[in-house]
Design a protein around this nucleic acid. Structure first.
Lengths: 212, 212
DNA sequence: CTGCTCATGGGCCTCAAGGCTCATATGATG
DNA sequence: CATCATATGAGCCTTGAGGCCCATGAGCAG
């Protein structure tokens, strides 16, 4: 689980991004602040592997803050109007990534994983950066969840949309009720749970299935 | 369920907001576009009660688009740098709400509910507007979910964090297993489900409980 | 060719889960 | 004061859920 701090004075942006990152199975937003100084303070009481920092903030430039942070967190700078000049300043201040707010969410998510893994995206050229981001495109699941078979994931997805009875699951999948129970038993072991209710919740939490 | 369309050229903002609104039990984002013309086109194939429109977009001002939309959707304008002049233009174009991107997410959510209910927020003074938003602060739950008692919600919250066994629920709540089963039976009726797995999912979907 | 995983299925057993009806105490509300 | 909603609890009964062990055929890798 990568802990992320967001510093942006536009609450709609910060809260929206926060919710979106919390939906991902491997990132968790541990704080949202609206200024550079507030970010420094928040990181003292709540450590975070990665910080998303906006440049345009009241009470001081976001980039100035980054150089103060040092090794407490890895910073990714996001800017409304991304310019080469801003990028250079961000790089000098020690930022590990630099993106326009026009990039897709999946790109930022990949960047967060890359940066949390020790990569420095800002000093790469665009081609090398995109290749690296490709590599970090998928969330890394828990060891148990990663070993789920396709059929098991299928069952979890049905569970998460409310198909919970054994006979209904069997009908939907055109297999016998016994096979459904066998798959479920295997799922319980892999996810370390003891019944289908916990399995459904875990599937939602891990991002394997969506509720509605 | 209020269907919402988002028009904003900053993908990070649009996708983040989209995810955040989808988490709410009574709003669903049915489309995300990056320009005014794209919004008009999207609304033709996918109706939406409310549209969130950014002013600053490439290929034409967002406000110009609104006047074209007519009664197909109710528009809420959001702006990075909200000015009185922009607000007046938005009002003349027929927008029902006008907000800076600095407002909290809950405010925008309340505004979406108000506008979907036929209210016109933009012509109100700030005090009257805030009063109205207060009134729309809570998501209106399904008729069944609304009649859940405190104890029943408590049980649903435990269910959603993985406390699924009757004996564990009884221990956590300091009541007998029989009472737990009685409460659950009542929950099943109110939510129109048939077992605790479906109840847990429904609780998450309705926003009564959070998974992790 | 020999394991290996995966999907399919069977049998058996135990207990938990869910359906049904009912009772009691409490606090709010008309 | 009478009534209603809520929280608590009981008994009884049926079936579904989960635990355990095992078997077979397909497909794939060494």
């Amino acid at each position: 689980m990568i802990r992320v701090m967001i510093a942006d004075d536009h609450q709609l942006f910060a809260e929206g991004l926060s919710q979106a990152l919390n939906i991902l199975p491997d990132t968790r937003v541990v704080g949202v602040v609206a200024s550079g100084p507030a970010l420094e303070e928040a990181l003292l009481s709540q450590p975070a592997e990665v910080s998303i920092v906006d440049i345009e903030m009241p009470g001081g430039d976001g980039i100035d803050t980054i150089s103060e942070l040092g090794r407490r967190t890895s910073s990714i700078v996001v800017s409304m109007y991304a310019s080469d000049e801003q990028k250079e300043r961000a790089q000098k201040a020690g930022a590990r990534g630099f993106f326009s707010k026009g990039v897709p969410l999946v790109t930022l998510a990949a960047a967060i994983r890359a940066v949390a893994d020790g990569q420095d995206l800002i000093s790469l050229d665009d081609t090398a950066r995109d290749e690296l981001l490709e590599h970090y495109g998928q969330a890394r699941l828990d060891p148990g969840a990663a070993s789920l078979t396709e059929r098991e994931k299928e069952i979890l997805q049905l569970l998460a949309v409310g198909v919970s009875a054994t006979d209904e699951l069997a009908e939907r999948l055109y297999i016998s009720q016994k096979t459904v129970k066998n798959h479920l038993a295997s799922i319980f072991q892999k996810l370390a749970v003891s019944d289908r209710t916990q399995a459904a919740i875990e599937a939602i939490r891990l991002g394997i299935a969506r509720p509605s």
